[in-house]
């Protein structure tokens, strides 16, 4: 008994320097169980880079199809300073970011209320369901021509395309967030005298927030993947436009620069939203 108690104490406290650290264990589980994967990921990336370098250096693949990492980096610097297709890299990035942000704001501010309403109200669900279920599996490229015919080739057709692509995941997740709420919480709020509006504001909306944030994260990802399609429409700026334009001149290294930039931004956005999630919904941890 005393021995076991002493061991517990050791594990509670930080082990002082110099003393031997006890051999901590964790239960055997299936799956990952929160074990860190960062080092493995970094190693995999490094291996990929080395393979890329070797394949290109020994001329296994022509530089036209696969430029060396060095060439891509040189091109990145060149595009950043001198620009490509009439605009610098930061101007291309700025144009794309503005479109994605605008679309994300419009999509969130419409999809969240509509999704909540669909989770709560028979009429809202009945009215909106067929429309959303009909359009959201469609690839954005399929209704892109319609956007051009209806809205022209300016910014509005691009932003509408992105907004439509982002709307569905946010709307569906808000709806799922409402449905997943335990009925006891709603009943508790009602029996404390809450009105419908008070219960919506204090119980339903915060309760659905984790799901909504997940939906926004997915939507931003969808936004990036729709971006290239959106910028096919007579754009003169934008990362997607830059890639398409470079492809026509077989400037493979610029294509790689564009892909790299999108990857970095998409990753940063996803990470940022995860941090936002942790900040906004800190209770969503182990209970």
């Amino acid at each position: 008994m005393t021995l076991a108690a002493a061991k517990d104490k050791d594990q509670d406290q930080a082990t002082p320097a110099g003393s031997s650290r006890p051999n901590t264990v964790r239960p055997r589980t299936y799956g990952l169980a929160d074990r860190p994967t960062l080092a493995i990921s970094l190693a995999a990336l490094a291996v990929l880079l080395v393979v890329w370098e070797l394949v290109t250096r020994f001329g296994l693949v022509q530089s036209l199809f696969l430029p060396t990492p060095g060439e891509v980096w040189t091109q990145f610097v060149a595009v950043s300073t001198d620009g490509y297709a009439g605009a610098t890299l930061s101007e291309h990035i700025g144009a794309s970011l503005l479109r994605i942000f605008t679309a994300a704001v419009i999509a969130s501010s419409t999809a969240i209320p509509i999704g909540l309403a669909m989770g709560l109200n028979r009429w809202a669900k009945g009215l909106a369901d067929p429309i959303i279920e009909f359009y959201w599996p469609l690839p954005p490229l399929a209704y892109l021509p319609l956007m051009i015919i209806w809205l022209g080739i300016g910014e509005s057709s691009k932003i509408t395309l992105l907004t439509l692509a982002m709307f569905a995941p946010i709307c569906l997740s808000a709806q799922a967030g409402v449905r997943g709420l335990p009925v006891e919480r709603i009943n508790a709020a009602l029996s404390l005298g809450g009105t419908r509006w008070q219960v919506l504001r204090t119980v339903i909306l915060p309760g659905a927030l984790p799901e909504i944030l997940t939906g926004v994260r997915i939507a931003i990802g969808v936004g990036w993947s729709t971006l290239v399609a959106a910028e096919l429409i007579a754009a003169t700026r934008g990362i997607g436009f830059m890639i398409m334009s470079a492809a026509q001149f077989l400037a493979t290294d610029v294509v790689f620069v564009g892909i790299g930039v999108i990857a970095v931004f998409a990753f940063t956005f996803s990470l940022g939203l995860q941090l936002l999630e942790r900040w906004l919904v800190p209770w969503k941890g182990p209970q």
Partner: peptide, 13 residues
């Protein structure tokens, strides 16, 4: 009519 539930119906946030 105040209600105490079996499962805690507290708001976790």
């Amino acid at each position: 009519r105040g209600v105490v539930f079996q499962k805690d119906a507290l708001l976790p946030w």
